[in-house]
């Protein structure tokens, strides 16, 4: 990101906030229905010092983190397997094609039945939902590995496991990390959804409680935090991708910056 795009982006955000503030102050939008931008921003800052909010936020992040770890541990090896062995992939495909399009929110009642504890329901749904982008991207990356690269290592007498570890996995790594980046945003969506519908503790529960108490500015402040979290996670991973996989961008001809 250059300085120019950064300052333009900042200008866009400020402009949006100013317009929202003006609409509220001039009475076009009733500040009782939708609180003023400045009120929401103040509440957002205030939440950073609110111990109850921080505890709930921590719970959501916990569920996202634990869920993500499990889905990486399950989906990446599964993707390696399906991407390496055509026969396994053919037998698994109908199941994958059926399960993948199910909206994870639609599985909330199922998870509720399976797990009495809402925290378990939340983590299990996070694992389920975050596994798909990881699985699909890993599989795709493994299939895209250049056969000549594998053959090169084989020609030096390396066996099939060494070929997977030293050629296929490094070569598929950019795809796997793209899957990870998508999975991270999925974990946040699913965790908050489950909290909204089922309860337990977390950002979603905090929002429900604020909405029930008609604390609109507080509710919107929590929404702003959810957005900021997603933005930060995405930015961090995208930055890591650019740094780690310069070779990939250099080869595919995409700009490295």
């Amino acid at each position: 990101m250059t300085k120019g795009t950064l300052s333009r982006g900042a200008a866009g955000v400020c402009g949006f906030l100013l317009i929202a503030e003006a609409l509220g102050r001039t009475g076009v939008i009733d500040p009782v229905v939708l609180p003023l931008a400045s009120t929401v921003l103040g509440e957002t800052l205030g939440l950073a010092a609110d111990p109850d909010f921080l505890l709930q936020l921590g719970n959501t992040l916990d569920a996202c983190g634990v869920g993500l770890l499990f889905s990486v541990a399950i989906a990446v090896p599964a993707g390696v397997l399906l991407g390496t062995f055509r026969k396994v992939e053919r037998s698994a495909r109908p199941l994958v094609e059926f399960l993948r399009p199910i909206p994870s929110v639609a599985l909330i009642p199922v998870a509720q039945f399976l797990f009495r504890d809402p925290e378990y329901a939340k983590v299990s749904l996070v694992i389920f939902a975050a596994s798909w982008p990881l699985l699909i991207n890993t599989m795709y990356g493994m299939r895209e590995v250049d056969p000549l690269a594998k053959e090169t290592l084989r020609s030096f007498g390396f066996g099939p496991l060494a070929v997977i570890g030293r050629v296929s996995l490094p070569s598929a790594a950019p795809f796997i990390v793209t899957g990870l980046r998508i999975a991270v945003s999925v974990t946040l969506i699913v965790a908050v959804s489950v909290e909204l519908f089922v309860g337990g503790t977390g950002l979603g529960t905090f929002m429900s409680a604020a909405a029930a108490g008609n604390q609109r500015a507080e509710m919107l402040g929590a929404v702003v935090w959810a957005g900021l979290l997603g933005l930060a996670a995405n930015g961090l991973l995208a930055g890591a991708e650019r740094r780690l996989f310069r070779w990939h961008h250099a080869r595919t001809g995409e700009p490295a910056r």
Binding site: L148, A149, T152, P170, S171, F245, W247, R251
Partner: peptide, 8 residues
Amino acid sequence: YSRSLFPW
């Protein structure tokens, strides 16, 4: 060579 050398 460009495919036989490992770019990473």
